[in-house]
Lab assay of single mutants.
Amino acid sequence: MQIFVKTLTGKTITLEVEPSDTIENVKAKIQDKEGIPPDQQRLIFNGKQLEDGRTLSDYNIQKDSTLHLVLR
């Protein structure tokens, strides 16, 4: 499925993911596309910070959902 990740600069990254993917996996995909190390990434969905060990389906993230990427 496709999800979107919006950065603070207003750029939107499109990712191909599975609901069973962990947040860690998603961060690795963002690193592949953008070169941002996962330990600098914080992903936010519906105002909640997403934890590495959880999956997209844990957070009820579905296709065409938009996550927000904050760098630390």
Rank of each mutant, 00 (worst) to 15 (best):
1 M>F: 12
1 M>E: 07
2 Q>N: 05
2 Q>E: 03
2 Q>K: 06
2 Q>D: 04
3 I>F: 01
3 I>S: 00
5 V>D: 00
5 V>Q: 00
6 K>R: 14
6 K>G: 05
6 K>D: 06
8 L>W: 11
11 K>D: 03
11 K>R: 02
12 T>H: 13
12 T>R: 07
12 T>N: 08
13 I>M: 12
14 T>D: 10
17 V>I: 10
17 V>Q: 11
18 E>Q: 03
19 P>H: 05
19 P>K: 04
20 S>Q: 15
20 S>G: 04
20 S>L: 12
21 D>W: 11
21 D>L: 04
21 D>N: 15
22 T>A: 05
22 T>E: 12
24 E>P: 04
24 E>G: 08
25 N>M: 14
26 V>D: 00
27 K>Y: 03
28 A>V: 07
28 A>W: 10
28 A>N: 03
29 K>T: 08
29 K>H: 07
30 I>M: 14
30 I>D: 00
30 I>F: 14
31 Q>H: 07
32 D>F: 15
32 D>S: 07
32 D>Q: 14
35 G>I: 04
35 G>D: 04
35 G>N: 02
35 G>E: 02
35 G>M: 08
41 Q>R: 09
41 Q>M: 15
42 R>K: 13
42 R>P: 01
43 L>M: 07
43 L>W: 02
43 L>V: 09
45 F>W: 10
46 N>A: 11
46 N>V: 11
47 G>D: 03
47 G>Y: 11
48 K>T: 05
49 Q>Y: 14
49 Q>I: 08
49 Q>W: 02
49 Q>E: 11
51 E>A: 14
51 E>L: 05
54 R>T: 07
55 T>I: 02
56 L>Y: 01
58 D>G: 03
58 D>A: 15
59 Y>T: 09
60 N>R: 06
62 Q>E: 04
64 D>F: 03
65 S>R: 02
65 S>M: 13
66 T>R: 09
67 L>S: 01
68 H>P: 01
70 V>R: 02
70 V>I: 08
70 V>H: 11
71 L>A: 04
71 L>W: 10
71 L>N: 12
72 R>Q: 09
72 R>N: 09
72 R>L: 03
72 R>H: 06
72 R>G: 15
